[in-house]
């Protein structure tokens, strides 16, 4: 399990692994938003939590199809499936690797990018917290979606269509926590629910993902 994790991490960091891609995409998105809605600081302040969350969500979507597709192409997925490691653990490990290479860097980058969007001072802490709690759910849901579409030749676009509706609850509670944090309305409630969603997906989706992988490898 640790071996798969380190192997995935090494593959991602090497050239063409898409490690920096998600971060660069996130940066560009945040830069583009003011061009779209104008440089008005008060307006940016209002939309900043939502934009940062949507940006992080889209950026983590970018590398989803690589979770299983590359392993499927070169046949290593079959090997991993026949290994003594349960498929459920494999799915969870893959999701963890995806989180470490996208979710975690995005979380760390978000407060810095928040400055560009004039995120109020009180928001930085809650933004980091909510992303830290919420992005594992994004990776886990994404791994499930990737497991569903692994056998398809053009799975990328379909994957986004399948996964994005599943992201709705995470996005709602995540962005709401930041907004409440800024306004001082007790962001603990949405954060707790967000943590519940993350733990729930971590507990259940490895089984659904492993089921989908078994069907696809049949």
């Amino acid at each position: 399990m640790i071996h798969i994790l380190t192997r995935d991490l090494r593959l991602a960091i090497r050239a063409g692994g898409g490690f920096g891609l998600a971060l660069a995409f996130f940066l560009i998105l945040v830069v583009l938003v003011p061009f779209g809605i104008g440089p008005d600081a008060t307006l940016l302040e209002i939309v900043a939590p939502g934009i940062l969350w949507v940006g992080a969500l889209l950026a983590s979507l970018l590398s989803l199809d690589r979770i299983f597709a590359t392993d499927h192409e070169d046949g290593s997925l079959e090997l991993l499936a026949t290994a003594p490691l349960p498929l459920e653990v494999l799915v969870a490990t893959k999701a963890a690797a995806h989180w470490l290479t996208t979710g975690l860097p995005l979380t760390l980058a978000a407060p810095v990018l928040g400055i560009l969007l004039n995120l109020p001072a009180g928001g930085h802490f809650w933004l980091t917290m909510s992303l830290l709690i919420g992005t594992p759910a994004l990776s886990m849901i994404g791994a499930f979606g990737a497991a569903l579409t692994v056998g398809l030749k053009r799975g990328g676009l379909l994957l986004s269509l399948l996964v994005l509706p599943l992201y709705v609850p995470t996005l709602i509670f995540g962005a709401d926590a930041v907004r409440r944090g800024i306004d001082g309305f007790g962001p603990q409630t949405p954060l707790t629910i967000l943590a519940g969603i993350t733990l729930g997906t971590l507990a259940l989706l490895p089984f659904a993902g492993a089921g989908a992988l078994r069907v696809n490898l049949r």
């Binding site: 569903l148 989706l205 989908a212």
Partner: peptide, 13 residues
């Protein structure tokens, strides 16, 4: 199989 799994997970979400 895959659409059934999606339907199950989708219902929860």
């Amino acid at each position: 199989d895959l659409t059934s799994i999606l339907c199950l997970v989708g219902s929860v979400f």
